[in-house]
């Protein structure tokens, strides 16, 4: 585990500055760490970002039609991207965004999907579409369907909704499944380290 431990530390320092990683590597869980720093540099400009987003969204037909409940049918789209664990991706709890995707984070993505945490499709431009339905099933259904595609790169046809700055996706059909293409465990090891494979006990 020495190698993965080194990568773990480097990831937290380098991949994306995360001043407040909320994980205790000695425990198999997320751990609140309130004594650490709370807010990143980006967050300091949150009000500016939100203002800009609101200004942009004023001209968005998708947003305008989605605002009233039950009002939208969604834009039909085809999108290619990786199925990701959105909690670890957005919260920073496990480290930088480069490390909480792909093969490195596959087991943790399984845990989170089984836990009912929403999955997303992250497209190449970095936009994340929160998956609400996947091939006819609610994305939290207690079946194997959503589990089978964790960390896979898929091309999906579906319906897109934008509401209050978040993109949502109903996946109606998967036209291509390339499997796991981001082999980042070679760089980061397993993220978190306690998700790594272990030598079977004799």
């Amino acid at each position: 585990m020495a190698g993965s431990g080194k990568h773990w530390i480097l990831n937290m320092l380098v991949v994306r500055p995360r001043p407040h990683i909320g994980i205790d590597p000695t425990k198999e869980s997320f751990v609140p760490m309130p004594s650490l720093v709370k807010t990143s540099l980006i967050a300091r400009f949150r009000s500016l970002s939100l203002a800009a987003a609101m200004a942009l969204s004023m001209g968005s037909p998708a947003l305008m039609t989605a605002t009233p409940a039950h009002a939208a049918t969604g834009d039909v789209i085809e999108i290619k991207g990786e199925i990701i664990d959105t909690w670890c991706y957005f919260s920073g709890v496990m480290g930088g965004t480069d490390a909480v995707v792909g093969s490195a984070h596959h087991t943790c993505a399984l845990w989170c999907a089984a836990g009912g945490i929403p999955v997303g499709v992250r497209s190449d431009d970095g936009k994340v579409y929160m998956v609400l339905k996947y091939k006819g099933e609610g994305s939290a259904a207690q079946t194997d369907t959503i589990m089978e595609v964790q960390s896979h790169v898929i091309t999906a046809k579906g319906r897109h909704f934008l509401r209050d700055g978040i993109d949502y996706l109903i996946v109606d059909d998967v036209v291509a499944d390339e499997g796991i293409t981001n082999l980042n465990h070679n760089d980061f090891g397993a993220v978190p380290p306690f998700s790594a494979p272990k030598k079977p006990k004799k």
Partner: peptide
């Protein structure tokens, strides 16, 4: 959320299958 956005509504908010 599916009901709210798309009008695809069920009893009991999907009974655990939906976000």
């Amino acid at each position: 959320v599916l009901c709210e956005l798309a009008g695809d509504c069920t009893d009991q908010c999907g009974a655990g299958d939906r976000q």
